[in-house]
Computed example of a mutant assay.
Amino acid sequence: MVMCQLQIFTGRVMFMFVLLGWYFVEPVSSQDGAGSIVGEVLDGMTGVPLVGAIVTLDDDEVGISTDENGHFFLEQQRTGAISVRVDHDGYITRVEPVSINKNTVSFVHFYMSSMDLLLDELKVVTQREREKEGPGLGDIRPTEAESSLTVMKLMAARIPSLTVLGGTYSAAGTPEIRIRGQGSMTVSNTPAIYLDGVRINSQVLMETFAGDVERIRVLKGPSAVSMYPDAVNGVILVDTKRR
């Protein structure tokens, strides 16, 4: 940790000396009306200079690389607003607007975010979305081998928490679906069923084949009710491939 902090401090000191040298010793630009850009690229979490980052202007295909201290220098640039882009393996691309004035040096700092950090944030967001949906009792993505089964038969086989009462698995009868542990013995405890966002009855599940379905989810709990007010006894969500 001490060595890392010393490296950062040393790099910053060197960067300041380089800037002073460019600003006071070198003419900013020999081209009339042009300006220059001086910058550094750092890890946004640790502050460590990033070596070999590719710096490009606007839509230029060819860029320059940062040096061992994460610095770069672009001279003879036209005045006005310009976009500076920085790419580095393992980091999220950054684009910053820079204003270049005649015969001046514009300074810019890039603090890069690690791609691993972004993936961690996405995992957190995904987990929160799952928590909003409530406890999941089943999440099915039908296989090719199951494509000839009806959705009703597939759920009965793949979701242990579901119970099918009465009727058959063909269109000859209309069975009732129960989610174990939900509802009561005195009132209806049939879950709400939605096909592509439209409320349906269980008969439709006997007429829909798994080969036409992308995903089947069974949810329950207060969070499910907050999204589907009629899901007091749980909800079955069927998404077809044509959705």
Rank of each mutant, 00 (worst) to 15 (best):
V105H: 04
E129N: 00
E121S: 02
K132S: 03
L122S: 11
R130H: 05
K123S: 13
E129P: 01
E131W: 00
L122C: 14
S113I: 14
L117G: 03
F107D: 05
R130E: 12
M112Y: 11
K123I: 09
T126R: 08
Q127S: 06
F110K: 07
Y111A: 15
V125M: 08
S106Q: 02
S113R: 14
H109Y: 12
V124Y: 08
S114Q: 10
T126I: 04
D116K: 13
G134T: 04
M115R: 02
V105S: 02
Q127N: 05
S114T: 13
R128A: 08
Q127P: 01
E121C: 00
S113C: 10
K123G: 13
M112V: 11
Y111G: 15
E129C: 00
M112W: 11
V124T: 06
V105Q: 06
H109E: 15
F107G: 00
E121H: 05
E133R: 04
S114I: 06
E131G: 01
K132F: 11
M112L: 15
K132M: 13
K123P: 07
L117W: 05
S106P: 08
V105E: 06
R130L: 07
V124S: 04
G134P: 01
L117Y: 11
E121V: 04
S113G: 12
Y111V: 10
S106V: 09
R130A: 02
F107Y: 15
K123W: 11
E133G: 04
Y111R: 14
E133V: 04
E131T: 04
R128Y: 08
S114N: 07
D120L: 12
Y111S: 15
T126L: 08
V105P: 00
M115P: 00
V125A: 04
T126Q: 10
L119D: 02
L119H: 01
E129G: 00
